[in-house]
Lab assay of single mutants.
Amino acid sequence: MSDQEAKPSTEDLGDKKEGEYIKLKVIGQDSSEIHFKVKMTTHLKKLKESYCQRQGVPMNSLRFLFEGQRIADNHTPKELGMEEEDVIEVYQEQTGGHSTV
C-alpha cells in the first residue's frame, strides 16, 4: 500500500510543476525593474502585453530577450528553461537604418 501512496504523490508533484508559478524580473533599458509572477505554462505574450500596457507603449515597439534570445509570443517559461528570479531584458525595437557599404 505504501507504494501506491507514494506513486500518486509523485504524480501530484509532476502536476504541481506544470502549474507552478515563478517570479520573473523584467528590466528596461533605463534599468527599471518590474516583477511578474507567471505560470510555467503561460505564453509569455501575456507578460509582454502587461509590461507594455504599464509602460504605455505599443508591444511592437519593444523586444524582449532572455539569455540573449528573442522571446516569441508563444514561448512559455518552461520551454525556455526559466527559473525563479530570472531576468528578461527589454530593448527599444530598432527599425529602419541603412547599409554603410
Score class of each variant (00 low, 15 high):
residue 2 S to C: 12
residue 2 S to P: 12
residue 2 S to I: 12
residue 2 S to H: 12
residue 3 D to C: 05
residue 3 D to M: 06
residue 3 D to K: 09
residue 5 E to A: 13
residue 5 E to R: 12
residue 6 A to C: 14
residue 7 K to W: 08
residue 7 K to D: 08
residue 8 P to G: 08
residue 8 P to C: 14
residue 9 S to L: 10
residue 9 S to V: 11
residue 9 S to R: 11
residue 10 T to D: 05
residue 10 T to W: 13
residue 10 T to H: 11
residue 12 D to F: 10
residue 13 L to I: 10
residue 14 G to C: 10
residue 15 D to P: 11
residue 15 D to S: 09
residue 16 K to T: 11
residue 16 K to P: 12
residue 16 K to D: 07
residue 16 K to S: 12
residue 18 E to N: 11
residue 19 G to M: 15
residue 19 G to T: 15
residue 20 E to N: 15
residue 20 E to D: 11
residue 22 I to D: 01
residue 22 I to S: 06
residue 22 I to F: 05
residue 22 I to T: 14
residue 23 K to V: 12
residue 23 K to Q: 12
residue 23 K to P: 01
residue 23 K to C: 07
residue 23 K to R: 14
residue 24 L to N: 03
residue 25 K to Y: 02
residue 25 K to C: 04
residue 25 K to W: 01
residue 26 V to D: 00
residue 27 I to F: 10
residue 27 I to C: 07
residue 27 I to D: 03
residue 28 G to S: 15
residue 28 G to I: 15
residue 28 G to L: 00
residue 29 Q to M: 05
residue 30 D to F: 04
residue 32 S to I: 10
residue 33 E to C: 03
residue 34 I to P: 04
residue 35 H to V: 09
residue 35 H to M: 09
residue 35 H to P: 05
residue 35 H to R: 12
residue 35 H to K: 11
residue 36 F to H: 02
residue 36 F to C: 03
residue 37 K to Q: 13
residue 38 V to F: 06
residue 38 V to W: 01
residue 39 K to Y: 07
residue 40 M to P: 12
residue 41 T to M: 14
residue 42 T to N: 02
residue 42 T to F: 01
residue 42 T to W: 01
residue 43 H to K: 15
residue 43 H to D: 11
residue 43 H to C: 15
residue 44 L to K: 04
residue 44 L to H: 02
residue 45 K to T: 05
residue 46 K to R: 13
residue 46 K to H: 12
residue 47 L to T: 04
residue 47 L to F: 03
residue 47 L to N: 03
residue 48 K to S: 01
residue 49 E to H: 04
residue 50 S to T: 15
residue 50 S to N: 00
residue 50 S to Q: 15
residue 50 S to V: 13
residue 50 S to L: 15
residue 51 Y to H: 02
residue 51 Y to A: 02
residue 51 Y to K: 05
residue 52 C to G: 03
residue 54 R to W: 00
residue 55 Q to G: 05
residue 56 G to I: 05
residue 56 G to S: 11
residue 57 V to G: 04
residue 57 V to T: 04
residue 57 V to W: 09
residue 58 P to I: 02
residue 58 P to C: 01
residue 59 M to R: 11
residue 60 N to R: 07
residue 61 S to R: 07
residue 61 S to G: 06
residue 61 S to N: 03
residue 62 L to W: 01
residue 62 L to Q: 15
residue 62 L to I: 15
residue 63 R to L: 07
residue 63 R to H: 09
residue 64 F to Y: 01
residue 65 L to Y: 15
residue 65 L to F: 08
residue 65 L to S: 01
residue 65 L to I: 10
residue 65 L to H: 14
residue 65 L to R: 02
residue 66 F to E: 04
residue 67 E to L: 09
residue 67 E to H: 03
residue 67 E to C: 11
residue 67 E to F: 14
residue 68 G to V: 02
residue 68 G to N: 06
residue 68 G to I: 00
residue 68 G to F: 01
residue 69 Q to R: 10
residue 70 R to W: 10
residue 70 R to M: 10
residue 70 R to V: 12
residue 70 R to P: 11
residue 71 I to A: 01
residue 72 A to C: 10
residue 73 D to S: 00
residue 73 D to A: 00
residue 73 D to E: 03
residue 73 D to H: 05
residue 74 N to S: 14
residue 74 N to V: 11
residue 75 H to T: 10
residue 75 H to Y: 07
residue 76 T to R: 03
residue 76 T to Q: 01
residue 77 P to F: 03
residue 78 K to V: 10
residue 78 K to E: 13
residue 78 K to S: 15
residue 79 E to R: 05
residue 79 E to N: 06
residue 81 G to M: 00
residue 82 M to T: 01
residue 82 M to W: 03
residue 83 E to C: 09
residue 83 E to K: 14
residue 84 E to K: 12
residue 86 D to H: 04
residue 86 D to N: 13
residue 86 D to R: 03
residue 87 V to A: 13
residue 88 I to S: 04
residue 89 E to C: 00
residue 90 V to L: 03
residue 90 V to P: 05
residue 92 Q to I: 08
residue 92 Q to S: 13
residue 93 E to K: 06
residue 93 E to V: 08
residue 95 T to L: 13
residue 96 G to V: 00
residue 96 G to N: 03
residue 96 G to Q: 01
residue 97 G to H: 00
